[in-house]
Design a protein around this nucleic acid. Structure first.
Length: 465
RNA sequence: GGUGGAAUGGCCGAGAGGCGAGGCUCGGGACUGCAAAUCCCGCUACACGGGUUCAAAUCCCGUUUCCACCUCCA
């Protein structure tokens, strides 16, 4: 089996292969670390994880690089610049802000069981790479120094501009949705800055061959991807909003350097909506991993929700769906914990029936990451008449692919002595057939977060979700 | 205006020309002292108008509406 994924540029599915070696090189656009990543950002980062997990299950090797944008992607206006403005509002340096949120980003990934990339290069530590890259583009005639000392890429110098997004230069009209002011600094309205001259700023600026300033937004990805993936990206991943202009410009900057297509395949993840709207500060519906933790929800319930939707579809999420996933996850973990799997280690050692289900699931992943289908296969297997120990084997076997920690021991808080006493009183009341008292105690325990299950074997309890 | 998508029951969502995926909610039943959990049953949908076909959610033409991107964006 091979992993096939939709490629934005060719608008068709392509099998993921390596161009230069047996290692598949993957670049994923990373976070700008001026705030916490919200769960929409994390959906895109999960996409990379799913690709990598699928490739590993197929026995492929990968090299994954994700940048950390701690500079660049900046504006001249202090108030508008995200890192500088955030530093100001938190009364600390932009650098401190960046390092802090970078750490939090890694914690969020860990909560969602997203396997780490092999390298996380920081833009601030790759400035020299960018200098070299920009200089080459100037030498090749693709870039020029404008009248404002900013270095611009000449869009017209790159004939296939627009191949990814469909926004070719004839179709891009200046000023349609923004106020375009032709100050004469650049030669063509669609040209963009590679190095932004900024003589008046004193924080987050560098001395370059073209004067003091900071890098343009797109150059870091070109420079870092080609450096850390040794000149070729087999698969480039990012959010759909990056398709234009970011990836279009990145392609224009990278291709001339390698004298060919620097990226074999472009993979874009669609956006996540929350309760019907795009997550934004103004809509007040930005959800963070920490919000899930505050509500006592397992962050992997979020991973579960993401898996139930196709990465190429816009997805609408709500607290209701996360809670439902949380409950299903808890049920499956109970099942996995209730019996010993027959075989833990290799797919070959599995019972044939289980092996066939695993194969179906792997092939759903290979079909452009059809995770909803994979989840459905798993769901019906869990509901089927398959013996419990085989179900348990199945949950173990697919763990490397799903990453839902289905076999994780259930995290149980110790009940307080009050709760233990109430439970004992209720047991006694039931034994004495004092149902008024036992019902009152059940209500009281419910208020303390305890759900009671009465069965033939007596009273059981668990923490409410 | 350009570009890329989408429209399926109360809700979320799969769908391959041919018996209506699945999940959640809700209603009914079994079980239970009563509940809960679990199991069983029920809720017969494909934006609109044409067309092709023995047969269309699926293919073709047209229309409408919605979302995203068009120099902050995952």
């Amino acid at each position: 089996m091979e992993l096939s994924l939709y490629d934005t540029q060719s608008r068709s599915e392509k099998i993921v292969t390596s161009k230069n070696s047996e290692v598949i090189t993957i670049y994923c656009c990373g976070p700008t670390v001026y705030r916490d990543a919200h769960i929409g950002n994390l959906r895109t980062f999960l996409l990379t994880d799913l690709v990598v997990r699928a490739l590993h299950v197929l026995g492929k090797k990968t090299l994954v690089v994700q940048n950390i944008t701690d500079v660049g992607h900046m504006t001249d206006d202090f108030e508008e610049d995200k890192l500088l403005a955030q530093g100001k509002s938190e009364s600390r340096s932009a650098r401190d802000v960046a390092r802090d949120y970078e750490g939090r980003f890694h914690r969020d990934l860990a909560h969602l069981n997203i396997s780490p990339a092999d390298h996380y290069p920081r833009a601030s530590e790759s400035i020299d790479l960018m200098f070299a890259h920009i200089q080459k583009l100037i030498d090749l005639g693709h870039a020029y120094v404008g009248t404002d000392n900013t270095v611009y890429f000449s869009a017209k110098s790159f004939p296939t501009y627009g191949a990814i997004s469909g926004n070719t230069l004839e179709k891009l009209k200046p000023g349609h949705r923004y106020d375009y002011v032709d100050d004469g600094a650049k030669q063509f309205h669609a040209d963009w800055a590679l190095w932004k001259s900024s003589p008046n700023r004193n924080e987050m600026v560098w001395n370059s061959p073209w004067g003091t300033g900071f890098p343009g937004w797109h150059i870091e990805c070109s420079a870092m991807s080609l450096k850390f993936l040794e000149g070729h990206v087999d698969l480039h991943i990012g959010g759909i909003d990056l398709r234009f202009p970011h990836h279009e410009n990145e392609r224009a900057q990278s291709n001339p350097i390698v004298n060919g297509e620097a990226v074999s395949q472009w993979l874009h993840g669609e956006h996540l909506l929350f309760e019907g709207r795009k997550m934004s500060k103004s809509a007040g519906n930005v959800v963070l991993v920490s919000h899930l933790l505050d509500k006592g929800l397992d962050p992997l319930a979020l991973r579960f929700c993401f898996l139930e939707n196709r990465y190429r579809s816009q997805m609408d999420l709500s607290w209701e769906s996360i809670t439902a996933a949380h409950q299903t996850l808890a049920k499956w973990r109970l099942l996995a914990a209730s019996t010993q799997p027959t075989a833990r280690d290799s797919i070959q050692a599995l019972n044939q029936e289980v092996r066939e289900i695993v194969n179906e699931i792997v092939s759903a992943f290979c079909d452009d990451l059809d995770t909803p289908r994979a989840m459905q296969i798993l769901r019906s297997a869990v509901k089927s008449s398959l013996a419990d120990n085989l179900k348990s084997s199945l949950l173990n076997a697919i763990e490397p692919l799903f990453g839902l920690a289905l076999t994780r021991a259930i995290d149980v808080k110790e009940p307080s002595s009050e709760i233990l006493q109430l439970l004992e009183e209720r047991r006694a009341a039931r034994a004495a057939k004092d149902f008024n008292l036992s019902d009152a105690l059940r209500k009281r325990l419910d208020e303390l977060g305890i759900t009671i299950h009465d069965g033939p074997e007596g009273q059981r309890w668990e923490w409410k979700i």
